[in-house]
């Protein structure tokens, strides 16, 4: 599995109110949430995302704050599939897998990226390559069961599949 795209950069401690302000939590429709993604930081941010062709890179403690699953859903809804960060807040990290968003923890490697760089994530190799600068950032491969959750599209479809398999 590979993801490629142009990098959008954010800083440290990007909180859930920045990702999706509470006034938008009256829906669970990913497209609607996606249109307001990062509105708390910059109302025009979501328009910068080219669906399927953008990678988000951020600093420490990405997703701190609320338990709202609307946060990873808004990022997915905006057209992003991967967030590369120094580190993630605990609840957001679980929520990302559960909703089908790939969170990649790379520590100080996040500083290898600047806004507008082109990058590629190679899941099998456990490597992110900044194709603009040639920089290489390795990450530990995901355990098979976490990959299975992502491949199923999140925890709910994953559990459903398991329940069906058990019933057969």
């Amino acid at each position: 599995m590979r993801y490629t795209g142009k990098v959008l950069c954010l800083g440290d401690h990007i909180d859930t109110d920045a990702i999706i302000p509470a006034c938008r939590l009256v829906t669970s429709d990913p497209a609607e949430l996606g249109a307001h993604c990062m509105e708390g930081l910059d109302p025009s941010w979501a328009a910068k995302v080219v669906p399927g062709k953008t990678l988000l890179v951020a600093g420490r403690n990405f997703g701190c704050g609320s338990s709202r699953e609307h946060a990873p859903m808004a990022i997915l809804g905006a057209g992003l599939e991967v967030v590369i960060a120094h580190s993630f807040a605990r609840i957001f990290y679980r929520n990302a897998f559960n909703t089908g968003l790939l969170p990649l923890e790379v520590g100080d490697g996040w500083t290898e990226f600047s806004e507008g760089d082109e990058a590629e994530v190679d899941m099998e190799a456990g490597m992110i390559v900044n194709t603009t600068t040639g920089g290489q950032i390795p990450f530990p491969p995901l355990p098979a069961d976490m990959r299975a959750i992502l491949e199923a599209g999140g925890l709910a479809p994953f559990v459903q599949k398991r329940l069906k398999a058990n019933a057969v």
Binding site: I91, N95, T99
Partner: peptide, 21 residues
């Protein structure tokens, strides 16, 4: 809800998670 951790005040292990969990 992320503030589920409040119940630690009376000695319960309580923690916030997302809706799917």
């Amino acid at each position: 809800d992320s503030h589920t951790c409040t119940y630690g005040g009376i000695g319960a292990f309580a923690t916030g998670m997302g809706s799917t969990d």
